[in-house]
Write a protein that binds this DNA or RNA. Sequence first.
DNA 1: ACAGAATTCAATAGAATTCTTGAATAGTCA
DNA 2: TGACTATTCAAGAATTCTATTGAATTCTGT
Lengths: 226, 226
Amino acid sequence: MEKNNLLENTEKLFEIVAVLASSIGQKSRLKILQLLSQAPRSVENLAELSGESTANTSQHLQRLYKDGLVSVHKDRLSRIYSLRDERIASFIENLLDLAECISTDYLKCSNQITNDEIKNQKSIVEIIKEVKNKKAVLLDVRDEYEAECSPVTGALTIPLKKISSRAKSFSKSKIYYLFCRGRICHTASEGVQILRKLGFKAYRLHESPNTLKHLIKNDPNRSSYV
Amino acid sequence: MEKNNLLENTEKLFEIVAVLASSIGQKSRLKILQLLSQAPRSVENLAELSGESTANTSQHLQRLYKDGLVSVHKDRLSRIYSLRDERIASFIENLLDLAECISTDYLKCSNQITNDEIKNQKSIVEIIKEVKNKKAVLLDVRDEYEAECSPVTGALTIPLKKISSRAKSFSKSKIYYLFCRGRICHTASEGVQILRKLGFKAYRLHESPNTLKHLIKNDPNRSSYV
DNA sequence: ACAGAATTCAATAGAATTCTTGAATAGTCA
DNA sequence: TGACTATTCAAGAATTCTATTGAATTCTGT
């Protein structure tokens, strides 16, 4: 009897975890979660950004809600969805890391301007030190709304669109480290291309805003940020 | 042109990650992965343990293989599948943690004898210290094969079946911490019930063997284990 | 109260997944 | 070689998932 209960519980647990994973395991929903990990958004907004229809997006959001991944609040006519827990964002990053170490070919794609070039020479911690010492600049190239909603202390926010105009005030002696939504987003790569054409030293970081935020926070020498 | 490539890459990445997550997000496959994170096993073996048909298990294994989660080698007539990377095991643990913090009701199930009771009083690190100081005993109640394949240094292996007979040599003054495959397995709970009926102080740990192994390894005072 | 906006609902068609069955294959061991 | 074993293959039925459409709902602001 007791044993049966335990078995049932185990079954239930497997079920719950499987549902959770399969909730994430769908392209449209993954996109939505990726967007929400940057900033809260309305249904219409998410639909537009993910390129799906509104009704479809709404349905996916309802599933994500049911599975406990997102929360909602109302703002006038709209319903604003957000990630229910910050840990979901880091979990998805985790998933990307796993994909990286598992999938053999997927990231070998050609024209990526990443921190791979410098990865083995400089650790992200070193880079943050450089930024702190004003030898380098951390550039957040996401749009203003996202940068505002999940800000990275110590980073300069310059949305991709404005980067070429703002570059006039840049220094050729500094190194520019660009980041966007993280590994799955390529905005920063575009920014790097632009800056390099203009003759600056620019690299892309794969780390997500969230990761960077925490890395900066835990930097023992972070006093100069405050 | 370049921009399109980047967009395609992004799409591809979403796809890859979604496939990976949905590969994990299915009950039978999750079970298989959970089993494989303890020890390598043959198809027939996995089928039996997970309660699915052989053909079905074989098919799931093929999908897991295609998605890069498991590897195979032959041993006489059988094909022995194993987890392709240790990180997959910790990723799944991660997933379980996420489920824990997200799902509101799932773990409130009644008759669980867990380390919840002691969680807020003792951290797992303290428990390991107790074990080191011989005040407590760490009991691995998985079967011999699994315990042998993913051993935890410092733990005493006593499979559930043998626990009541082996308990004769136990001490009433010590605390017994039991663990099994981790959070999703309830063998340790059964063991706790048995030991308590016999009058011993027994608790279940939720941590997986892998986690415990690492915790013990990183214990600064681990010298006494060697 | 009413026009309009944002979202959800309901129904459906098409696609994909999962499990089952029974046969086919490949390899072992005597 | 030939019986046997473990696994895979192939085909199909049942189920579930996804995207689409257009209507219904709910709420805002006037």
